[in-house]
C-alpha cells in the first residue's frame, strides 16, 4: 500500500476519554493504562487494514468476462460498442487477443477536447457556446490513435491493497487483469474495488 493510501486509511482517532468510558462500562479492574490501550488499538488497527488489503485478490473481485475492443475498429464502432455494453472504457486487444492498450472516456474527451482537463462538462459547455458538436472530429479515426499505451495491467494475484495504490498513483479507473500471455481474463473497476471493501453493506 502506498503512503498516500495509508494516510487516507488512518485509524479512527479514539481519545483516551473514549477508552476511559469503555473501561468504566466494562466491569472489573483492567490492568492497562488508557494510553497503552490506545497504542495497542492503533497498531492493531493498522495490522487489520493490511490484513484485509492482502486478503483479497484481483481474481476474487474482478468483473468477467471482460468486454474488449479490437485494434482496427474505428472510433464510431468503439463508441457504439461501449455505449451498448454500458461501460465507460475497455481493454484494446490485437488479433491474437493480447492486450495492446486501454481506451476510455478520457481518451475520447482528450481527442475532442480543448483546454487541459478534458472533462465531459467542458465539452458540453463548448458545444453550447459554439452551436455545434465537436464529436464529428472523431470520425474516420482508428482506435490506436487515441488509446492509452502501454496498458497498465496486473495478474489475478495482485491484492486489493496494491490495486488501490495503482488507482491512486497512476490515476486510472480500471485495471485489466491478464493471464501470463497478456490476454485479458477480467477487469477490476472502481466499483469492484469499492464493493470488495464491503463498506457499503
Amino acid at each position: 500500500m502506498s503512503e498516500a493510501n495509508d494516510r487516507f486509511c488512518s485509524p479512527i482517532d479514539i481519545s483516551e476519554l473514549d477508552i476511559l468510558a469503555a473501561m468504566k462500562d466494562i466491569q472489573g479492574y483492567i490492568d492497562i493504562s488508557p494510553g497503552d490501550f490506545k497504542e495497542v488499538f492503533q497498531v492493531a488497527y493498522s495490522h487489520a487494514v493490511h490484513r484485509l488489503m492482502d486478503a483479497r485478490k484481483a481474481g476474487d473481485i474482478m468483473t468477467r468476462p471482460v468486454h474488449c475492443v479490437e485494434l482496427g475498429m474505428d472510433l464510431v464502432q468503439t463508441a457504439t460498442f461501449l455505449a451498448d455494453k454500458g461501460i465507460t472504457g475497455a481493454p484494446v486487444v490485437d488479433a491474437d487477443g493480447r492486450i495492446a492498450g486501454v481506451v476510455s472516456e478520457k481518451d475520447f474527451l482528450a481527442r475532442m477536447g480543448i483546454g487541459t482537463s478534458h472533462s465531459f462538462m467542458q465539452i458540453i459547455a463548448h458545444c453550447l457556446h459554439n452551436k455545434g458538436c465537436m464529436a464529428t472530429v472523431l470520425r474516420n479515426h482508428a482506435i490506436q490513435e487515441i488509446m492509452t499505451t502501454p496498458a497498465i495491467t496486473a495478474g489475478p494475484e495482485i491484492t486489493i491493497g496494491a490495486i488501490s495504490a495503482l488507482f491512486i498513483d497512476r490515476q486510472i479507473n480500471r485495471l485489466p487483469i491478464v493471464d501470463t500471455d497478456g490476454r485479458p481474463v477480467g477487469i477490476v473497476t472502481r466499483t469492484d474495488l469499492v464493493q470488495s471493501y464491503c463498506i457499503t453493506r
Binding site: E16, L20, M23, K24, Q27, I32, S33, G35
Partner: peptide, 13 residues
C-alpha cells in the same frame, strides 16, 4: 507522565 490513570472500579468489584 502525560497519560491518564484508569478509572476506579465499582463497589461491587
Amino acid at each position: 507522565g502525560n497519560g491518564q490513570s484508569p478509572p476506579r472500579v465499582s463497589l461491587v468489584e
